[in-house]
Amino acid sequence: MTLAICMFVTWCVWIAFSLMPKKLSVLDTVFVLFGGTVFELSIFTLLHVNLSWIVVNPDIEKSCANLVIRLLLIPVALLISTNIMLYDWKVLKWIVAAGILLSFVPLQMLQVRLGVITALHVPTIGMLLFFSAYMLFARLLAGLIRAAGRKEERRLS
């Protein structure tokens, strides 16, 4: 059941991503997905394996549910936030981005409640800081690859 619930939430995030208007090109999206996942997984592994601040349940189903969240949900959520931060909206985009950031709190709570995470030694504000770092890093990557594309276009023209 745990895995099914996590997959359902992940699927909803994928639907949200597929429906939203996108500012990133396909190549930009792939790059941000790869880079964002690398950053997020690295931080998670440091917290989980090295520091034991997050303890994941070793049960097969619950560990797989955690993998679904880490590998399939969070990277796509980062893509959503990156696209939103690239919108032309002035204030609204930051409000929506803050909303996405706050939505990571119930996601963590859901994982704790489902027994996916058995111990969470990071306070909520700490988790928010980590997730805001993921979002900022993903936005930075988007800026980087867009700048690389623009620079090359200028050079070629």
């Binding site: 090109s25 190549l27 930009d28 792939v30 790059f31 997905l33 790869f34 880079g35 996942t37 690398v38 997984l41 690295s42 592994t45 989980h48 394996v49 994941v56 070793p58 049960d59 097969i60 560990s63 797989c64 993998l67 880490r70 590998l71 690859i145 690389a148 594309g149 620079k151 090359e152």
Partner: peptide, 28 residues
């Protein structure tokens, strides 16, 4: 390759390595 393509092709290996090491190399 174009700059964007080259960056994606490079990052692809980084991502794949991390993906497998963190799925096959960690619990469960």
């Amino acid at each position: 390759f174009r700059a964007k393509n080259a960056i994606v092709y490079y990052t692809c290996g980084l991502y794949t390595g991390l993906f497998f090491d963190h799925s096959l190399g960690l619990e469960p």
